[in-house]
């Protein structure tokens, strides 16, 4: 039997399959952060962004479109392009997301840059696939497009193999999760060592420069990191190394509360309510400086924060970069 899924799922899954990015961003745009770094394309350690941080500002405008239009309506389907048009051309992010603010784009693009800089400081040498890098397909897996994921994963692996790397370091815990647990089931001989960005920083945390931050910080443990990948103490260790005072939310580590991000594209309002509640839970710790380690958490908590709330929400990468500049 054939099923007709909400349009936004069609758009996202087809974009991944056809364009290697959930929002059909161009490879050159996704890789623009790395211009000045001249990273090699081959090496033992592959720096993998999956285009996820770069995509965040666009997700928000996609979500705004969804929130303001009835997903079942004609207008919505026109906005999103009919399925057959989609097959030929994909969605043009330039047209669809014209409202994206340059400052948001810069901020999220620079997360990758900052991450790379921090690793360099710690003495890591790594390569990057640049504009050829493909999104991991985590959303295909999440949203149930597993058969499509099987074919798609082959293409991702081809690109990864070109680098000659043995180890892949993932900025996003979602990418780390699928590479670690899903890819080995889909692709024979997928034997890369998968680690998260946090793993690498943690190993050399003694080398991190101290960060002078007058206020304390509170960690929002990402679900994937804390529960699937079992990484939570590492975050505290890293922050201790840079001399930050860490406050704890009541629900933390493996009991962390989800940011609401995973349902953002289908149930945007509810996702915001959940994100907003999590922001408050985190602030109840006594700190209003929230650090997370996942692109979707970052975006969902930002989206959930109440208007006028002065809480600072940052990725740990952004926080650690303060030490690099100093």
């Amino acid at each position: 039997m054939e099923t007709k899924m909400p349009m936004v799922l069609d758009v996202i899954s087809e974009n991944i399959i056809k364009h290697g990015s959930p929002l059909a961003l161009k490879g050159s745009e996704v890789a623009s952060w790395a211009k000045e770094l001249n990273l090699p394309v081959k090496g033992d350690l592959l720096f993998y962004t999956g285009g996820e941080y770069q995509m965040l500002p666009f997700i928000d405008s996609l979500v705004k479109t969804i929130t303001h239009l009835d997903q079942g309506s004609k207008v919505f389907s026109m906005m999103m392009g009919a399925r057959n048009i989609l097959n030929k051309t994909g969605i043009s992010p330039e047209k669809m997301y014209a409202s994206v603010l340059a400052k948001d784009k810069d901020r999220y693009n620079s997360v990758c840059f900052k991450a790379a800089k921090v690793l360099k400081e710690l003495g890591y040498e790594f390569c990057y696939s640049g504009s050829e890098e493909l999104y991991s397909g985590a959303l295909l897996y999440e949203l149930g497009y597993l058969k499509d994921m099987k074919d798609y994963a082959k293409r991702v692996v081809e690109v990864i193999k070109k680098s000659g790397a043995k180890t892949i370091v993932c900025l996003s815990p979602h990418a780390a999760e699928v590479f670690k647990f899903v890819y080995p089931k889909l692709i024979e001989g997928f034997d890369f060592e998968i680690c998260t960005y946090i793993d690498l920083v943690w190993e050399r945390r003694d080398k991190l420069a101290k960060i002078s931050s007058p206020e304390s910080v509170v960690i929002h443990d990402s679900c994937r990191l804390a529960r699937e990948l079992n990484i939570h103490q590492e975050l505290r260790d890293i922050l201790e190394s840079v001399g930050a005072e860490v406050k704890e939310a009541q629900m933390n580590r493996e009991w962390t509360s989800c940011c609401g991000g995973p349902i953002k594209i289908l149930f945007p309002e509810l996702s915001h309510v959940i994100g907003g509640r999590r922001v408050n839970e985190l602030k109840d710790s006594g700190s209003s400086h929230i650090l997370t380690s996942c692109p979707y958490c970052l975006s969902a908590l930002e989206g959930g924060r109440a208007k006028g709330d002065s809480a600072v929400i940052e990725d740990l990468i952004e926080f650690l970069y303060r030490g690099v500049k100093a």
Binding site: P6, R227, S257, P262, I263
Partner: peptide, 27 residues
């Protein structure tokens, strides 16, 4: 599709029922 698959239910469940995995299969 409204399940977050965040996995905290598994943490709580005395029977450790892996609901997120089942949700994935249903999707």
């Amino acid at each position: 599709y409204s399940c977050l698959r965040c996995g905290r239910c598994v943490e709580r469940c005395p029977m450790s029922i892996n609901v997120p995995a089942m949700i994935g299969e249903l999707r």
